[in-house]
Amino acid sequence: MGKDFYIGWKDEAPESNKKNIKRLLITLMVIISVIAMVLVVFSKSFTTHTFEFGQEKTFSGVLYVHPFPVLKLDKGQSPYKGNDYALLVGYGKFGASTYLQGAKIPKGDLSGKRVTISGTLIYGDGKVLIELTEKEKSLLEIENTVPPSAFSEKNRATMNGEIIDPKCWFGVMKPAEGKVHKSCAIRCISGGIPPVFRMGDSGSSYNYYVLLDETGNLLREEILPYVGESIKVQGSLSEINGWPVLEIDPDLIKYQ
């Protein structure tokens, strides 16, 4: 008989095989452990944004529907002092508008009315969103009418940044920017979640603006090719229902 010969269906492998395999596996496990360490330690840090998944709560305040749905929360309900304006988004990758229009309780024009809703908080970087987790059933009560919110004055501006979907960015997904999240953001914005322009470079502090067209309506399909990319936009800055907005001509968006 020649040298040691391994046969899988025999009970024992030759000692020389055992020794070599053991040595190889230990070496590989050490290398793999180092690789795992490198992958985790050197990856970009996740944001501290929060999605209170599974913790549905009741919120009350004044509802504004146009051009995007916002609930001005009653005092003490926002996780951030000084920002009571919660952007409303739908369940999954949908905006909240459809659910509000489809709610079963009698309503008429909802804008400017006091409402009670159920939903799940999403918050980060000073911004607040509420997911209408129960879809049409999220609108619980409508009370008396209050005066509509005032729109602020407009200023022209040019800025660099990225179009994100605010639902994922402010807590539902991590990471929720760039190439890895591009498809998801496209689905969310296509489904009616208001597109948000995040101004600033990675690692710096950001400013956020809901993107509208020049007639004041939410942008959707027109801006999908630019979602998740580094772009330059120019338009009119203002504030609507507590949220900074940027009205732009999507044809003037430029890649950086």
Binding site: G92, K93, F94, M173, C184, R187, C188, S190, G191
Partner: peptide, 8 residues
């Protein structure tokens, strides 16, 4: 995660 619960 990235494609379900959307409009397609």
């Amino acid at each position: 995660q990235f494609h379900a619960l959307g409009n397609i």
